[in-house]
Simulated scan of single mutants.
Amino acid sequence: MTTRDLVLVALFTALVVALGVIPGIPVAALPVPIVLQNLGIVLAGAILGARRGAAVAMLLVILVAIGLPVLSGGRGGLGVLLGPTGGFIFGWILAAFVTGLVAERIAPAGSSLGRTLLGVGLGGILGAIVLDYAAGIAWLLAVAPNEAGLPLGERLVKTTLGMAVFIPGDLIKIALAAVVTHALSRAYPIPRR
């Protein structure tokens, strides 16, 4: 990585941390709150590209692991990473990478708004919804107690349906990320890597 790459990764990590100042909104009966930090993850992948976007998410995970309160609500530490939301946090690495990879392929720098919406939208849906949710749900099933004694298949269905409440908000965040990516690429083009 060049010095410029390192600076961009640090700046976008700071953006994701700043989005964590806004407290998460708890969702009834779910241990996962609605947060804005995943908007920053999608932006990192869409604007910086797959490698640097994933580096942003990895740096964030490292900051959480060493105990810095960089997540929504001032949370941090290994307890958070090993708790119910840990899979979603680790999933951000994959989310940023896939968002960046798809955006790089479909909407290269200087693309039209429609093409940017398509590239960032598809990348965000695949990365920040499909893959991040899969990582988060798998982790949640592994660490959450099975107090009702349900079979794994039934727990999987109930948990997946419970996560559906997050999809509309995440789609709005992905659309916002696409619009910001398009505007920024016009004002200050950053080659994706």
Rank of each mutant, 00 (worst) to 15 (best):
A14R: 09
L15H: 10
V16A: 00
V17A: 01
V17H: 01
L19M: 13
G20K: 02
V21E: 05
I22K: 08
G24D: 07
G24R: 00
G24T: 07
I25A: 14
I25L: 13
P26I: 14
V27Q: 07
A29G: 02
A29I: 06
A29N: 15
P33V: 08
L36A: 04
Q37F: 09
L39Q: 09
L39G: 14
V42F: 12
V42P: 03
L43T: 15
G45Y: 00
I47Y: 02
G49L: 11
A50S: 15
R51F: 04
R52Y: 10
A54N: 12
A54P: 08
A55F: 11
A55Y: 06
V56Y: 04
A57T: 01
L59D: 01
L59I: 11
L60A: 00
V61G: 01
V61I: 13
L63F: 05
L63H: 01
V64Q: 04
V64F: 09
V64L: 02
V64H: 03
A65E: 12
A65T: 13
A65S: 12
A65L: 15
G67A: 13
L68H: 01
L68Q: 02
V70Y: 00
V70P: 00
S72A: 15
G73A: 11
G73F: 02
G73E: 06
G74L: 08
G77I: 02
G77Y: 15
L78I: 15
L78G: 14
L78D: 03
L81K: 02
L81D: 04
L82S: 12
L82V: 12
P84R: 12
T85K: 15
T85I: 10
G86R: 11
G87M: 07
G87W: 11
F88A: 12
F88G: 06
F88D: 07
